[in-house]
């Protein structure tokens, strides 16, 4: 049994980033308030003192400018980790991400790799209303050339940043804001993680719950409740949103024959729709019941607590969906 340390998800992110900065002098962190402020979510607290202003680079509020600078630096011998405060703000940098990071390798006939890592928070649940709470990772997952990952566990929070920096392609890491304070165990000497595979977080034979990121703990909590009723739900954490690990998803579907998809994005044109489509294409005859999606209501996320709760997927919604799919 390896030793583990109890810490928050935020601390696991911090430890991963710290390890990355310590092992490679070409790694640097750039973004709004990453330095003197210590990181909007305190992920880079204390880094400025250890690594200096060059490597912990406070950027002005110019998302397109500093994300593009990260891409350029990645093409010119550095290993940038660009932090964007939230996914909503990243829309100001869409041009750089979609038109440059995702295309340069292909457009140049394979002459260029773009080893940039971009991190951002995503998701709702903190009453921050409609410009700080959305889950737009599905949009990014639409784009060939990008790798999109969503760490849901402490091991992934720590390890994905290191794996992303080892990857020659542009990687965007989506960190769900509601996970930041979640306590969990991290191995004292965490091993490497991959960026490709989905993971079965809880085994079960009656239904498959496919989810990722901030919805993983909700799905696991729902599975715990369902187990009391004798319903064994298998929870598949996608981990990588692009590329998608179809094999792991289909293996679970072929075992349980019933599927619930939990995605904090909206249903229309979403990642949940993509997963459903792939299951239909690849495992339709294995299904014993229509699939069910638990997604955000199709409204901009509202401020008032009770309305926000109603807008986002909740544990009770997942429980109800699984009950229905196995009925």
């Amino acid at each position: 049994m390896t030793d583990t340390v109890r810490m928050t998800y935020r601390e696991a992110l911090r430890q991963g980033l710290l390890a990355a900065l310590r092992r490679d002098p070409t790694v640097f962190l750039m973004g709004e308030d990453v330095g003197r402020y210590g990181g909007t979510y305190a992920v880079s607290k204390g880094f400025l003192e250890e690594f200096g202003e060059d490597r912990i680079r406070d950027a002005p509020l110019s998302e397109s400018g500093f994300v593009g600078a990260g891409i350029g630096a990645a093409l010119n011998g550095l290993k940038p980790v660009v932090e964007v405060m939230t996914v909503n703000f990243s829309l100001l940098a869409l041009d750089q991400i979609v038109n440059n990071a995702a295309t340069l390798r292909h457009m140049s006939g394979g002459q260029i790799n773009v080893p940039v890592v971009i991190r951002m928070t995503t998701g709702g649940g903190r009453q921050l209303a409609a410009q700080h709470s959305h889950s737009l990772e599905g949009w990014y997952a639409h784009v060939p050339g990008l790798r999109i990952v969503a760490p849901a566990t402490h091991a992934d929070a720590y390890g994905m940043i290191l794996a992303a920096l080892d990857d020659p392609d542009p990687v965007i890491i989506f960190e769900h804001a509601m996970l930041l304070n979640v306590e969990g165990e991290l191995a004292a000497e965490p091993g490497p993680v991959d960026l490709d595979r989905a993971a079965v977080r809880r085994g079960g034979s009656h239904a498959t719950v496919v989810t990722y990121g901030g919805s993983v703990p909700k799905a696991l909590e729902a599975a715990g409740e369902l187990a009391k009723e004798g319903i064994e739900a298998e929870v598949v954490d996608l981990r990588s949103l692009r590329p998608l690990d179809d094999a792991t998803v289909m293996a679970s579907v072929r075992k349980t024959h019933r599927v619930v998809i939990v995605d904090e994005g909206w249903k229309s044109g979403s990642l949940s729709a993509e997963i459903m489509a792939r299951i239909v294409e690849q495992a339709f005859f294995d299904l014993d019941a229509p699939m069910i999606r638990v997604c955000s209501e199709e409204v901009p996320v509202p401020y008032a607590r009770h309305l926000e709760e109603a807008a986002l997927p909740q544990v009770a919604d997942v429980v109800a969906a699984v009950r229905q799919v196995v009925a």
Partner: peptide, 24 residues
Amino acid sequence: YGGNAIVAGALPMAVGFGLGDRMR
């Protein structure tokens, strides 16, 4: 490093190139 067909799209990258040369 290319013809870029988004007007001004290469300018932020040029900043990053400069950063790379300066830091290295």
